[in-house]
Design a protein around this nucleic acid. Sequence first.
DNA 1: TTGACGCCTTACCATTCGGTAAGTACTCTT
DNA 2: AAGAGTACTTACCGAATGGTAAGGCGTCAA
Lengths: 197, 197
Amino acid sequence: MSDTTRDQFIAAARRLFAERGFYGASIAAIAEELGLTKQALLHHFGSKEKLYGEVLLELSQQLLESTREITESDRGPGEQLVELVVAQYRVHIDNQDAARLIMRELLDNEQRAARVGNWYLKPYLDLLVDSVLAIEGTRTIGRGRALALVYQLLGAAHYFAVSQPTLTNIFGTALYTQARACFEEELRQLIRCRLAG
Amino acid sequence: MSDTTRDQFIAAARRLFAERGFYGASIAAIAEELGLTKQALLHHFGSKEKLYGEVLLELSQQLLESTREITESDRGPGEQLVELVVAQYRVHIDNQDAARLIMRELLDNEQRAARVGNWYLKPYLDLLVDSVLAIEGTRTIGRGRALALVYQLLGAAHYFAVSQPTLTNIFGTALYTQARACFEEELRQLIRCRLAG
DNA sequence: TTGACGCCTTACCATTCGGTAAGTACTCTT
DNA sequence: AAGAGTACTTACCGAATGGTAAGGCGTCAA
């Protein structure tokens, strides 16, 4: 059952890294979540860095997985882009730890550039950029412009998914619930309007 | 000239907090940037928390300032929203430390909810929501839906402003430069399309 | 029965953290 | 000249950090 313990460690690490960041989450605190000592954690992963790497790896696989059935379906290129962005939104809103962790990695990976798997987002972003370029009528736009658009849509989805605590604190649960209830529909509309315009 | 030293401390703190986060940036490292000891820093600010508060305060004032001349002008409500979002984008792209710090605060303020000035974003967000509600034809949408839209636009702008290191790492400087060159124009188009649709 | 291995512990380590205490050097006021 | 206040130092402190070393304990194979 060592595998179970290992997985529990990764799950706990994911939670705490998301909540407190890499520096803010100590390996002792992570181990305590399982009722074990930090040495048990080090036994399984060797170092804090390696544990963090495992968490990121699992996360990137999950993100890519969410795109699979969409790219395999036979939607038109425009609708495919809509669904890809919405799928990313759903992954993040359903798993806010993941959303927060990726956002943190976005902020921190500059100084950790040498870490393995640092470019784990690349295939995902390439997929989205290609999706934009595939849309008829946008074929004339450059890759840079496509990247700009992709990042706007990604940001629109990701940013909200990460902001629940802030928004409920500032505006209260009621208004947040309202916003969340219609967010996905609004997101679709935003993308469709842009593609039509 | 104590004021100068104080300001230098705040500037250095802003840089390091943005780069490494609250936990990752030690007061010793901040003081070292001025060639002073951490005790000199503590002499001026009393504690790390208070220094962080000063940084956030300065930041929030800067953000609000960027909205002033826009709300005072006599643009139509739609164009006002466009300019408000673009202004936020410009503040963040010109001062990436600020963009990163605000993003970090978005991630961290859950556990620091009791900190003074925690809702410093509220007047700014209220302003934007009201701006959406003021647009003709959107008067029928609820405040929740307006908030959803505001957050999408804010996210679209803020997310990109924070991602320069990641994007240049992943795609290289050339493509990033391309994307950045047309980003503002794309952003305007996104908002206008959405308001027209 | 013995040895190896996986899993986890206690004990310990150097380093760094934020913060306190006390004192030095300098300027400005009276 | 005396005193006060500002700006900064060195010298500490306890707590927490990530990590190492060594050993205990159970299981499983030979």
